[in-house]
Write a protein that binds this DNA or RNA. Sequence first.
DNA 1: TAGAGATATTAGCATGTGCTTATATATCTG
DNA 2: CAGATATATAAGCACATGCTAATATCTCTA
Lengths: 96, 96
Amino acid sequence: MTDLCKKINEFGRAMGNASRYRIIEALLKGEKTVGELVKIVHLTQPAVSQHLKTLKTSNLVIDERRGQEVYYSVDAPYILGLLKSLTTDVRNRKKT
Amino acid sequence: MTDLCKKINEFGRAMGNASRYRIIEALLKGEKTVGELVKIVHLTQPAVSQHLKTLKTSNLVIDERRGQEVYYSVDAPYILGLLKSLTTDVRNRKKT
DNA sequence: TAGAGATATTAGCATGTGCTTATATATCTG
DNA sequence: CAGATATATAAGCACATGCTAATATCTCTA
């Protein structure tokens, strides 16, 4: 499996879960703290933290601590790069 | 969950599974029969058929029977539409 | 430094998922 | 129509995954 494949696969795993997808959706509207996300997606704080961890491992989100709170936001350049690669692959497919 | 959300989520679920991702990859190189896919991804025939069923349910592939064989191919226009929507969403995000 | 607030981590459980084996359906050919 | 080939479906099992509850870690402030 090439590096790109692995990335796309991780991206899929992230977006394929409803909770994580809702987290991403929320983050697309602007950075949020864990506590804010908890209120938005209606999950417990540990559940949100766990999802954020997998999202971070897949490089889809960035975190930054400011005082007691940790702000999360989408890594847009990374995601856009992935989407572009994918789009190119589909465009260049062998037509039927 | 909006209609687009549901589609993207299904797309993610499809791409997030390694076997399904390999099937999509193979199909991007041109349409294939179930039997050909079995040889390529090294899964049993029922396993491949099951994956193809979920891919079809998510509208990512198209099937067409020709005699005894069924040919599968990616639904490129559909996928490209999804990727475009996703790209737009990420581009138009609220910057941090 | 003690306590409070915010987040992360761990363990455990219930459910979902992917695979296998067995069987059914469909299509062709003799 | 009978058998062969291609594909689909069903049942069952092992494992992965998402969630909860409990606890740990980190940071601020009095």
